[in-house]
Amino acid sequence: MPSNEEVFEKVREALVDALAVDDSEVTPEATMVGDLGAESIDFLDIVYRLEKAFGISISRGELFPDDILTNAEYVSDGKVTASGLSQLKARMPFADLSKFEQNPLVQDFGNLLTVKDLCNYVKTKLA
């Protein structure tokens, strides 16, 4: 099991290559979309680089369960419902959803994931 620093360094390398950002921009608190400028297609590239760097397999929707956000059962008036939030928490134990919970607008979900969340996700896959 690699150390937290080793995981972070490899995640950083994957993000620098996929998003053409500087090493210094990739901090644990940086959000993937807002701070690092990731677009939806970049996630395909990031997933591939993480799979290769860590020898793991990441299936569609695992890192980013957008199927929940398009399910009418879990969304009401543009907001994720309580049951939707509990689904997200169950599917994304690696992510800190506390801020999102305060005002769970679907449109803000895309900017939820941070570099730290990504590192936590990789650690759960390696465990």
Partner: peptide
């Protein structure tokens, strides 16, 4: 192809 998903490929 290095990787394929339903929404694209590398």
């Amino acid at each position: 192809f290095l990787s394929q998903q339903t929404d694209g490929a590398i």
